[in-house]
Write a protein that binds this DNA or RNA. Sequence first.
DNA 1: GCGTGACATTTTTTT
DNA 2: AATGTCACGC
Length: 716
Amino acid sequence: MSAYPEGPVPLLENLNPEQRAAVTLPHESALILAGAGSGKTRVLTTRIVWLIQTGQVSPHGILAVTFTNKAAKEMLTRISAMLPINTRGMWVGTFHGLSNRLLRTHWREAGLPQSFQILDSADQLSAIKRLMKSMNVDTEKYEPKKVQWFINGNKEAGRRARDAEAFDEYSMRLAELYEAYDAQCQREGVADFPELLLRSYELLYRNEPLRQHYRDRFKHILIDEFQDTNTLQYRWLKLFAGPHTALFAVGDDDQSIYAFRGADTANMAAFEREFAHGNVIKLEQNYRSHGHILTAANTLISQNAHRLGKNLWTAEGEGEPIRIFEAYSDQDEASFVVDEVKTLNREGVALSDMALLYRSNAQSRVLEHALFSAHVPYRVYGGLRFFERQEIKHALAYLRLLTHPEDDGAFLRVVNFPARGIGARTLEQLADHAVRAGGSLWQAACTGSGKVAGFARLVEEMKQATADLPLAEAIDHVIEASGLADYYRADKEGADRLENLNELVNAAALFADESEDNTLDAFLAHAALEAGEHQAGAGHDALQLMTVHAAKGLEFHTVFITGLEESLFPHEQSAHEENGLEEERRLMYVAITRARRRLYLSHAQSRMLHGQVRYGLPSRFLNELPEQVLLHLNRRAEPAYPSGVQQAAGHYGVAAPRSQGNDTGYKVGQSVAHAKFGTGIIIDFEGRGPDARVQVKFRDGGTKWLALAYAKLSPA
DNA sequence: GCGTGACATTTTTTT
DNA sequence: AATGTCACGC
């Protein structure tokens, strides 16, 4: 490493004291509690650059871990912008990407075939279904999804089948399935996502020389979004960390929103205890949002009991108040958003600098419809990713067969697609043959005759024909020769799919160009690990639509958080989960802190959900915000129904039309207050005159029938 | 073997 | 409302 400048390094000039302290920490482990908008990524990348620039470590000695490919890419881009040297020796990537890298290098020691394939979640689920079928397991009693959940949950906790907690008949059966599933994967030479981590963990755990090698190599390990680590990931990190490794963990416990898939904030406390030893730096200055927005976020999150504690502040002014809008219905809410977006856009806020957030994907439909009719360009994030599309998966399955014909999953996916007259019956027989011969379906097909053998010949031919072709051309050939292209050409709705297949060829060309390893295997791993940015739309100025989860890490001038109703946000499911409500509150915190300048919170009195009208109370989170930073855009007195039509509701507020009217002055959907039970919403009505009773769903969750003649209700 | 219609199901998501 | 899964009949 060349000489480095003495004295003040320009690199550090624009950092605040805490950021600078974090960046220039000596060679020891530390925990950085970085609040939303406090410059977390900047600190992380600047530290890497600083370490290298000051000659403390070579790129070779750095391991930086993120959760998403996007974050990894961003980090690399920023580093190379600051540092004119090549970053090749550095290990920067996702947990899964790095595990994959390790396993590809040491496949033999890890007990994997050199060309092992990666199963994504959907592949994994179908592998489980296939296994359960072959074992004659009742899928009513053991839902494949649950089995998958059990397997992954255990893997993510670092437990193999024999270590899985099994105490009753049911869980013991699950553990058996887990064991059989792992055996099947091993037989077929495939690894699911958690397997990548567990396998590389076990590899280093058992292989002392290898462990020593990596421990000596990595002087600095830096981890982004540490609050999202699960048990296995934390253990994985510990294995890489030798006595001379400094761990630099950056995270925000208040933004932990992935507990539902195993993330454990307890890792932060454990890390502080085991590594940081009190070496904790809090980044609390927020550079993103104006004061009122931060006040709202702080007040909200302070109502969580389980926190490490942190309070964001800003040097900016208070800014605008937070706008609250109560809509009659989801459609009303949507048209409100459309109007505001249009106005703001006219005033100069770029559409792409505005985000429309919701708790669950199903909510986007109404919003999209309204935006579409109003000709407001928008872009929806999430949904199906490129490499998850069926045509792409089909093409990839053919490609897998070329390098790894033992992959029964790939075989089954395309053996009869496009249709070749190979049905369930034939395949059952083939599976029988395979089991008896102790081989794969492919082997059985090769020794067989008829249509199945024809398929085997087809694959063989493709293999021959593509052997000497560059990656992209090989893929192009397979798409044609397999009959996929013809199939979609014949399908009148296949145009998009054809285009995607074309895109796949382009992606392969790009991959071959950029990557050092341009083999088909490498490309397949890439496809599984990086599901790919949902296509295009970039460059166009469009309103951003996404779930709150998807918004994490992003920021916008204006943010709309919609559907703030009880049971939607917080989601009703969260009530059944331990600490579920706190996670929902963190989710709300994340949503609020996305906004730089302007924040809208809206809720609707009625909403179409699962094809039925539901009535919801305003979210409790709205009540948890300090009134002085709020601006109520409206307080509507009359709820929205077609007049004269009564709506009855079930347990939760599902409406069914009823013909009778009433003369009491109360209506279904109306908010009312009760002296003892508090406020609630009328969800059903029966009887007339002195017998009239209403069913009220109260804020605390209870539902009661009340006789209007006795109960002292008042409109609220 | 394949296409059709009845039926259930419905959070959040990355890898 | 919309989507996927499954059983049934041709």
